[in-house]
């Protein structure tokens, strides 16, 4: 049981670091925003492993759901500007 959880947490950690790298170094801005949402989503799975279901629900609903859409609303409005 704990070995399975350890391996899962290692995989999640790698996924989070990779998504964070994409979010910081990715080419387009929309890809960066989506990758940041993926970091939050993987983090919410990690919270379930850490026995924190309340935090996991909050992170999934707010961190990876609403925040991503807030970014997209603003990005839709500044489209006239240069994208990096």
């Amino acid at each position: 049981m704990s070995t399975v959880m350890f391996v899962m947490s290692l995989l999640l950690a790698c996924a989070m670091i990779a998504s964070a790298y994409v979010a910081l170094r990715g080419q387009s801005l929309s890809m960066a925003v989506l990758a940041a949402g993926a970091v939050s989503l993987f983090a919410s799975v990690m919270f379930v492993l850490l026995a924190a279901p309340d935090v996991a629900m909050t992170e999934a609903a707010i961190g990876s759901g609403l925040t991503t859409f807030l970014f997209f609303f603003v990005m839709g409005r500044v489209k006239g500007g240069k994208d990096d």
């Binding site: 279901p53 909050t58 609903a61 707010i62 609403l66």
Partner: peptide, 17 residues
């Protein structure tokens, strides 16, 4: 159960979204 006002409020807002 897990969850509460903040999570439920965010889910309501995502329906509006």
């Amino acid at each position: 159960t897990p969850g509460g006002g903040f999570q439920g409020g965010a889910i309501l807002a995502s329906a509006l979204l």
